[in-house]
Design a protein around this nucleic acid. Structure first.
Length: 271
DNA sequence: AGAGGTACCTGGCAGC
DNA sequence: TGCTGCCAGGTACCTC
């Protein structure tokens, strides 16, 4: 489900409901997520104040004075604000209950998500230490991408989806950004010239920013903290439109696999 | 170091 | 109706 815009939408949705509140308890119904949910959570969290909710790539960082809760939503994860009297449904794996009985509930059908506890500097955490820059930051610019594509033979789509290059660009927005930049997803990354890198950087920023503004993309089941879907789906230009006419030139949109992931592009508009 | 494939898990859908 | 196979928004980890 969630790429950067969906995670950011979740972050913005849950923050006003829980920031500054005190953890009361944690209910773990399913500890077998991507990695086992630490058993110590039930001991560590109660009594701690949730100081801030930050995002790094697709990770959410819930900071307290004693440590940081690291959340990842995987492919199908979802966070909702609810109340204890709302019975947990299928795949509602974890409840974080606050002192005022606000509940932050993690639902994750496919269990690719993660809940971890980090008592040291999160920047040094193995999952976070080697991540690439934030796509919406100034650090992610033409010069940076030019340096990272140099000598690389992988398809450009695979490269921009690599979180060690740049975080947050998932399968939907990779196809969309490449369309905006008029670059074919199959192109070996090292073949892009500086102008193409510039256009791609700009396209990634544009697509992600627009998706955030529209509350993310809901294909099947993504909802924000209030249970509402995102509205970016209607803005998708190529993703999921295989065989349909390109919105720019009316040629049929191509559909193929790149690195085992569904990819969509216009063979006429993208070079 | 880079490239490519596999694994984790559940459920919806197409095709037979 | 029921079975099989394929597909899905992510990414760590393995081998070559």
């Amino acid at each position: 489900m969630p790429e950067l815009p969906e995670v950011e939408t979740s972050r913005r949705g849950i923050t006003p409901h829980i920031e500054g509140k005190i953890f009361k308890n944690v209910i773990v119904r399913q500890a077998r997520l991507r990695w086992p949910v630490p058993e110590s959570l039930a001991l560590d969290l109660p009594g701690l104040r949730l100081d801030s909710i930050e995002r790094r790539g697709k990770y959410l960082l819930l900071a307290t004075a004693k440590g940081t809760l690291i959340l990842h939503l995987g492919m199908s994860g979802n966070l909702r604000i609810t109340a204890p009297e709302q019975a947990a449904g299928k795949h509602d794996h974890i409840d974080f209950v606050f002192a005022d009985d606000t509940v932050l509930r993690l639902n994750d059908q496919r269990k690719f998500g993660a809940v971890l506890w980090c008592e040291t500097d999160t920047k040094a955490h193995p999952l976070l230490a080697n991540l690439g820059p934030e796509p919406l930051s100034a650090e992610f610019d033409t010069g940076y991408l030019c340096r990272r594509v140099a000598g690389r033979a992988v398809p450009i789509k695979s490269l921009i989806m690599d979180s060690h290059i740049v975080v947050g660009v998932g399968n939907i927005y990779a196809s969309e950004a490449l369309f905006l930049a008029s670059v074919q997803p199959t192109r070996p990354a090292g073949q892009l010239d500086a102008e193409e890198c510039r256009q791609l950087v700009e396209a990634i920023k544009t697509v992600l920013q627009q998706a955030i503004e529209q509350g993310g993309t809901t294909l099947r089941d993504f909802t924000n903290a209030d249970g509402k879907p995102g509205y970016f789906k209607q803005s998708l230009r190529v993703y999921g439109r295989g065989g349909q006419p390109c919105l720019s030139c009316a040629e049929p949109i191509q559909h193929l696999k790149i690195g085992q992931r569904a990819s969509y592009y216009c063979g006429n508009c993208q070079r």
